[in-house]
Every structure is written in C-alpha cells, then in structure tokens.
Design a protein around this nucleic acid. Structure first.
Length: 119
DNA sequence: GCTGTGACTCCTT
DNA sequence: AAAGGAGCCACAG
C-alpha cells in the first residue's frame, strides 16, 4: 500500500461523511483500514487540497476541533458545522453528532456471546 | 539514522 | 476536572 493510496482512502472516507454529522480522526483512520493512525489522517487533511472536501466534519475524539482555537480555519469549521445543524456545548460537539462506525458492533459481539453462553 | 514535532487517542494519576 | 505519559507514525532537519 502506497502513501498515495492511503491518502485516497482517507479522503474517500471524509468525503462520505453525511452533512450534519461529524467523525473523529481515529474513526476516519479505522474506516480507511488504518487503525491507530489518526495522526496520519490529520496530516493528510492539512496537506490536502480541501476544495470540495467536507474536512470540517472531522474533529478530535473529544468533540473539539483539531485546529488552534480561534484561528481562521477554526472559525470556518465551526461556522460550517453550525450551518449544517451541528451544535456545540462548551466548545465541544455533542456525542450524538458523531457518525456511527459499525452500527452496534458491541451488540453484535455481546449478542452472539450471550447466545452461546449467557452467564 | 536519530530527534523533535504534530489537524490524535487512550489510560492512569 | 486536569495533567502526564505512552503508543502511534510520517515527515523535516
């Protein structure tokens, strides 16, 4: 896998985030098949040609944006998100706006386990 | 090749 | 609630 194809995968995931929802860097990395490489996602976004890319829907796992608070890009990101209906509380995006990776990965796992052995 | 530096995340104090 | 540390990995010097 070349860096270029990894970038392409990352950008594909980002462009697939629905309006009104957000995704963490780590989540984007996982969906792109690059678990544990959130920093690489951040770097790709920084260097990417963001034209037409919904980069503003990517934030840190704690709901805060990755950019310097108060910077121009930070303002842009917040403004775009609010336009899409994403609301903030204390500078953090509320958890319910995060796109779900695998709908009920936990439920699937625990469900199958409990089906085998309910203890 | 080693070191420092992050648009990161998780766990432990 | 806040801070420190460890894991993570590409890139620049």
């Amino acid at each position: 896998m070349s860096r270029e194809s990894e970038k392409a995968d990352i950008l594909a995931i980002v462009s697939g985030i629905p309006s009104g929802q957000v995704m963490s860097y780590g989540e984007v990395a996982r969906r792109a098949g690059l678990p544990g490489r959130a920093r690489w996602v951040g770097r790709v976004l920084r260097e990417a040609d963001v034209g037409g890319l919904p980069w503003h829907r990517v934030l840190r796992a704690d709901g805060r944006t990755g950019l310097a608070t108060g910077s121009a890009a930070w303002e842009t990101q917040h403004a775009r998100l609010e336009i899409e209906g994403v609301r903030f509380s204390n500078g953090r995006v509320l958890p319910e706006y995060f796109a779900r990776a695998v709908p009920d990965l936990d439920a699937a796992v625990w469900g199958s386990l409990s089906a085998i052995d309910k203890s």
